[in-house]
Design a protein around this nucleic acid. Structure first.
Lengths: 144, 144
DNA sequence: CCCAATTCAGTTGTGCACAACCGAACCGTG
DNA sequence: CACGGTTCGGTTGTGCACAACTGAATTGGG
């Protein structure tokens, strides 16, 4: 549709468009549960790791408190998570799922099948893509 | 840092994080020109294709008018683009760069070198990544 | 013990994304 | 010409992202 002008920009644009496209694939699957894609990511961390501090959520998801604080407030309003102050350190807020939030894990089930199909890639290609993205993302830590 | 729970989500999260990481690499390079990354993408299209309708910008960038309208207004406020109604069809708005906007193309120069280094990938890997992203993104058209 | 530096979550302000909707301009057919 | 349907750009409302900042809690050095 559009001729390439420079490789770097094509890569970055593809990454940018692919990311939005992927969340667009999730949207209709998450909407019935009133979840957005970033909210779903937070829940995945909580399902996998159990109660987690806001700080650790930020590290795992590479998001800062300016993004997470209102997002967690919305998840709390939905009744999927609760926030409690740590007894050890009053600055720390520990986020944990409610019963409803935990129940979502089984209700949502495996979006895997539907989404892998949505990408049009086979498993080998997905594995390759994963490796490249991981490698591309790793060196960022040195800059942060 | 965090064990994988399912391939699909890791792919989607990697894509999501890599996209944000990439725009973070652009940010300090574009900030001196008061540009954001999406604004830079719009300018690239205009530099490459010349005067373009809002509709065509939306098709090329996969963005709708709800995103482009205010973005173009900000680019116009910065003095980099102007909008004119088409004489043939009064509904159509044609976007074109001003002299300042056109001059930016040479001022910004090649971000290529700096950014390819920022990714930590070599050229082969970038080419491979580009191909996978393109393939993953193509089938979306059927769904839209 | 005291205080300067640091850590932590939260708030504010700006700018995307995107759904839903709007009104003007065009188009086709009768 | 009239009019139903479509196309186009724009607006509104919600929810991320992120920089910059705030203030409370903690920590370490003197």
């Amino acid at each position: 549709m559009k001729a390439s002008t420079a490789l770097d920009d094509m890569i970055c644009f593809q990454l940018y468009a692919a990311s939005r496209g992927m969340t667009a694939l999730y949207r209709p699957l998450l909407e019935p549960h009133h979840l957005t894609y970033p909210q779903y990511l937070v829940l995945r961390v909580l399902w996998h790791d159990g109660p987690t501090t806001v700080r650790d959520l930020g590290h795992v998801l590479a998001l800062d408190s300016g993004t997470l604080s209102p997002l967690l407030k919305r998840l709390a309003t939905l009744g999927f998570v609760e926030r409690t102050r740590s007894a050890d350190d009053e600055r720390v807020v520990i986020v944990h799922t409610t019963d409803d939030g935990a129940a979502l894990e089984t209700q949502i089930g495996d979006l895997t099948q539907q989404l892998v199909c949505g990408t049009g890639l086979d498993l080998d290609e997905l594995t390759q893509l994963h490796a490249l993205l991981h490698k591309a993302r790793t060196p960022r830590k040195d800059l942060a």
